[in-house]
């Protein structure tokens, strides 16, 4: 088991003249599930994007470490699995084609066995060759989890993971999240009580609007 540590040092984000959050100091460690909570517009998605390297901070520093070695920014993508409502896959390709393209672009081997396992887990194996444009929003949400998990990342960040999912889908997500958290770092950004119930520790973003919390 590799140890993954994500450290935040005085992380502040300001959009124009609007302060989103300031001076977040925290350390996320693998083997646990962390929650990011807060009301709508509090900055959960913004912090999620910052943690995954998609957005830069206004000030402060983010450090991703695996086995005490800092991960180079150019290699960060292959250590991260991200699910978000903003994530859009290619509608003109089938599930299989999407996953094949992503593996090739990531430079990782396309693992047919793992793809089949995840497709079966999310109950979409039978429709794997259909174009994504005919999928429902719930099915697209399930594909996003396969996209996030296929390359076996050490850090998984799920932003509103259960949106558009039915009860069976939610149960499957919770089951896989707990399984992934045994070896990896998992962060869930959500307002759903059932999502946050999985977490070992919950950070409320609203606490970082003014000054550092006690």
């Amino acid at each position: 088991m590799s140890s993954y540590i994500l450290s935040l040092h005085n992380v502040t984000k300001i959009f124009g003249r609007r302060l989103i959050f300031e001076n977040i100091n925290f350390e996320f460690i693998s083997g646990k599930i962390y929650g990011l909570a807060g009301p709508n517009g509090s900055g959960k998605s913004t912090l999620s994007k910052i943690l995954t390297g998609l957005l830069s901070t206004t000030s402060g520093k983010i450090e991703h470490k695996i086995n005490d070695k800092v991960i180079d920014e150019d290699r960060l993508q292959n250590h991260i699995g991200f699910v978000s409502p903003y994530l859009v896959l290619y509608d003109e390709f089938s599930t299989i084609e999407n996953l094949q393209h992503f593996c090739a672009m990531r430079g990782v081997e396309y693992n047919q066995e793992k793809v089949n396992f995840l497709l079966n887990e999310f109950n979409i194996y039978d429709r794997r060759n259909e174009l994504l444009k005919v999928y429902s929003s719930g099915m697209k949400q399930r594909i996003k989890f396969i996209f996030a998990m296929l390359h076996s990342p050490n850090f998984l960040l799920f932003d509103e993971p259960t949106s558009n999912l039915d009860n069976l889908g939610k149960e499957k997500v919770y089951e896989l999240t707990q399984k992934e958290a045994e070896d990896n770092l998992v962060v869930i950004a959500s307002n759903e009580d059932s999502d946050l119930a999985l977490c070992n520790e919950v950070i409320n973003i609203s606490d970082f609007k003014r000054g550092t919390p006690n």
């Binding site: 998609l54 991200f82 978000s84 859009v88 290619y90």
Partner: peptide, 16 residues
């Protein structure tokens, strides 16, 4: 326009 920019950012470096 399709909103897939973020997906690309997640799979490869800017140079690639």
């Amino acid at each position: 326009e399709r909103g897939t920019t973020m997906t690309l950012q997640l799979v490869a470096s800017p140079t690639v």
